[in-house]
């Protein structure tokens, strides 16, 4: 078996409700592991706790309970060097590339920032060389270096965001709904890019989505979340072939099928199985 790279154990986070009502349990006792080289899908409707898990993982939110272990060390209580390593090796691609890129920074500065922070010793030319290399990997060119995010389309911006994440040669890539803010026509391109990057760089991927059709293309294993809890976990074949939980079946039934006849047949099937 491959070794476990990232382990989340008993993660919990409760938010005080805005209008002083009941506190909201955004994440409730969630545990999962991410093995080296695999792609794990985290699926659930909005409000199911997907984003909170992501935010806890990268340190934007401090979980109330639970531990996050990366490559043998406790991330939440890690020392300075280990935290730096975690920041370099675990990267996040945000959902909305219109919001995740600083509008006042050029592509060169955006993509090169990781290098500046983590490998400050590299010269400006050395950094540029690496930035161009990564840009070409994601389908952009060195000609894009001096441009600003506003000069790019959504798909291109997400490519820049991916380049920004890949520049420090990470081992784990967390993708927080990386295509849901994009046009359908562009989604496939970005998915294919992520797939190619995973293959070429041997990335371990945590893929967060609400769209099961997208997840199906990418993930080896799936975790289905509802109201902050894991309701189903299994391989892709298990979850898509024989969903165990009622909620998973409902989610699957909501995936549109382009062929109306097949869609009707499936709906009938779903109704009868209830």
């Amino acid at each position: 078996m491959s070794r476990t790279l990232l382990a989340v154990d008993g993660l919990g986070k409760t938010f005080a409700s805005r209008d002083r009502g009941e506190p909201v349990k955004a994440v409730d006792d969630v545990s999962f592991t991410l093995d080296q080289g695999e792609t794990l899908g985290l699926v659930g409707e909005s409000g199911s706790g997907k984003s909170t898990i992501t935010r806890c993982l990268v340190g934007l939110e401090r979980p109330d309970t639970g531990t996050v272990t990366y490559d043998g060390f406790d991330v939440l209580r890690a020392g300075r060097d280990e935290r730096r390593r975690f920041r370099r090796e675990v990267q996040l691609v945000f959902q909305n590339p219109y919001a995740s890129l600083n509008p006042r920074m050029t592509v060169e500065d955006l993509v090169g920032e990781q290098l500046l922070v983590h490998q400050g010793r590299r010269s400006r030319e050395g950094r540029r060389e690496r930035v161009v290399e990564v840009l070409e990997m994601v389908g952009l060119t060195g000609a894009h270096l001096p441009r600003y995010p506003a000069q790019f389309s959504g798909g291109q911006r997400q490519r820049i965001a991916i380049a920004r994440a890949l520049v420090s040669e990470p081992k784990v890539l967390i993708c927080d709904e990386p295509v849901s803010a994009l046009d359908v026509s562009v989604q496939a391109q970005v998915i294919n890019l992520l797939r190619a990057m995973r293959r070429e760089l041997g990335l371990t991927v945590l893929f967060i989505a609400h769209d099961l059709a997208v997840v199906r293309q990418l993930c080896d294993r799936l975790l289905v979340l509802k109201d902050g809890r894991v309701v189903e976990e299994g391989s892709r074949e298990q979850v898509y072939g024989a969903p165990a939980h009622e909620y998973t079946r409902a989610l699957l039934a909501a995936v549109p099928i382009p062929d109306p006849a097949a869609d009707r047949a499936r709906r009938r099937h779903y109704q009868e199985s209830r």
């Binding site: 934007l60 920041r87 996040l92 890129l101 600083n102 922070v117």
Partner: peptide, 20 residues
């Protein structure tokens, strides 16, 4: 989000304020 992105990257507080 872009400020959060910079925080995750681990930029210094000086850089966070002056650049982002």
């Amino acid at each position: 989000t872009y400020v959060e992105s910079a925080v995750i990257t681990g930029v210094s507080r000086w850089r966070l304020m002056t650049r982002h």
